[in-house]
Simulated assay, not measured.
Amino acid sequence: MNTQQARFNMVEQQIRPWQVLDPQVLNVLSNVQRELFVPQAYQAMAYTDTDIPLGHGQAMLHPRVAARLMHDLHLTGAEKVLEIGTGSGYMTALLAGRAQRVVSLEINAELANTARSNLQRAGVTNVDVRVADGSTGAAGDAPFDAIVLSGSVAEVPQTLLQQLKVGGHLLAIVGQDHVMAAVLYTRTADAAWDSKALWDHTAPRLQGFTEPTRFKF
């Protein structure tokens, strides 16, 4: 596989049509080698528009979804970012390309170790990958300029929203079953947050987050 051509095709055919047009975001996507973050068994799918299994019930997001999350955070390069759900480290690498520092939390130790190795191979150095339950965030490093959840949740815990700076943004795919949307939360004051649904998409669940009780009749 010509990975350079495949990466170019991914950007032009999958990502641009999803209204990801920021030149700096596209530059990061064009330069991060996605194949370094894909399990060996799925190398042929590295640049396809699909979720890629990582084991442990986790999966890599579609390239266009990772790109759109990046785009909608509007990072400038000076931010401290918290990522929930490191997975293979691909989204982490994208964030690192547009932030000053990234703290990434992964609940599964094996995935965290793999992600560290992947990031090292890719030459990404401004990232701290930790084994932790992402639902509680990283209060010791807060406040963050931006928080991104690399997977879906039923709802965003208040604990995470409280770890944003005033003016900071949290982006997550929120909802149930086949009804989910990317929602952007903005902290507008010490005790006030706004939220806005941006686009519809379903994504694999992040582990460790509370699910609502389902009534049985």
Score class of each variant (00 low, 15 high):
residue 174 V to R: 08
residue 144 F to R: 04
residue 77 G to P: 02
residue 133 D to P: 11
residue 23 P to Y: 01
residue 49 D to H: 04
residue 189 A to V: 04
residue 1 M to E: 12
residue 105 L to T: 13
residue 48 T to L: 05
residue 149 L to S: 12
residue 53 P to S: 13
residue 71 H to A: 13
residue 209 F to L: 15
residue 105 L to D: 10
residue 193 W to R: 05
residue 166 V to N: 12
residue 168 G to P: 09
residue 116 R to D: 03
residue 121 R to G: 11
residue 170 L to D: 02
residue 105 L to W: 05
residue 140 G to I: 08
residue 107 I to S: 14
residue 35 E to L: 15
residue 57 G to Q: 04
residue 100 Q to R: 14
residue 137 G to S: 12
residue 106 E to Y: 03
residue 14 Q to N: 10
residue 127 V to Y: 01
residue 177 D to I: 04
residue 184 L to R: 12
residue 199 W to L: 02
residue 201 H to W: 00
residue 2 N to W: 04
residue 89 G to P: 05
residue 170 L to S: 07
residue 146 A to G: 08
residue 75 L to A: 10
residue 18 W to F: 08
residue 150 S to Y: 00
residue 130 R to G: 11
residue 181 A to E: 08
residue 193 W to E: 06
residue 66 A to E: 09
residue 90 Y to M: 07
residue 145 D to C: 01
residue 92 T to I: 06
residue 71 H to Y: 11
residue 159 T to R: 09
residue 183 V to A: 03
residue 43 Q to K: 15
residue 64 R to P: 01
residue 88 S to A: 13
residue 50 T to G: 04
residue 25 V to M: 02
residue 194 D to G: 15
residue 131 V to E: 10
residue 37 F to Y: 04
residue 61 L to N: 09
residue 6 A to E: 15
residue 56 H to E: 11
residue 189 A to H: 05
residue 148 V to S: 07
residue 192 A to C: 13
residue 154 A to S: 12
residue 83 E to I: 04
residue 43 Q to M: 11
residue 61 L to G: 08
residue 167 G to D: 02
residue 27 N to I: 00
residue 111 L to M: 05
residue 34 R to C: 14
residue 178 H to I: 13
residue 23 P to E: 00
residue 115 A to C: 05
residue 158 Q to G: 12
residue 8 F to T: 15
residue 151 G to P: 05
residue 9 N to S: 09
residue 152 S to L: 06
residue 44 A to Y: 05
residue 25 V to T: 05
residue 124 V to I: 11
residue 33 Q to M: 13
residue 3 T to H: 12
residue 56 H to N: 14
residue 92 T to G: 10
residue 99 A to D: 01
residue 115 A to Y: 01
residue 12 E to K: 12
residue 18 W to Q: 14
residue 120 Q to D: 15
residue 161 L to G: 13
residue 118 N to I: 00
residue 68 R to D: 01
residue 12 E to M: 10
residue 199 W to F: 06
residue 204 P to V: 03
residue 127 V to F: 02
residue 152 S to Y: 01
residue 5 Q to T: 14
residue 61 L to T: 11
residue 21 L to W: 13
residue 73 L to T: 00
residue 19 Q to V: 04
residue 171 L to Y: 00
residue 194 D to M: 14
residue 171 L to R: 00
residue 30 S to K: 03
residue 1 M to G: 15
residue 107 I to N: 14
residue 188 T to H: 08
residue 156 V to S: 05
residue 20 V to M: 03
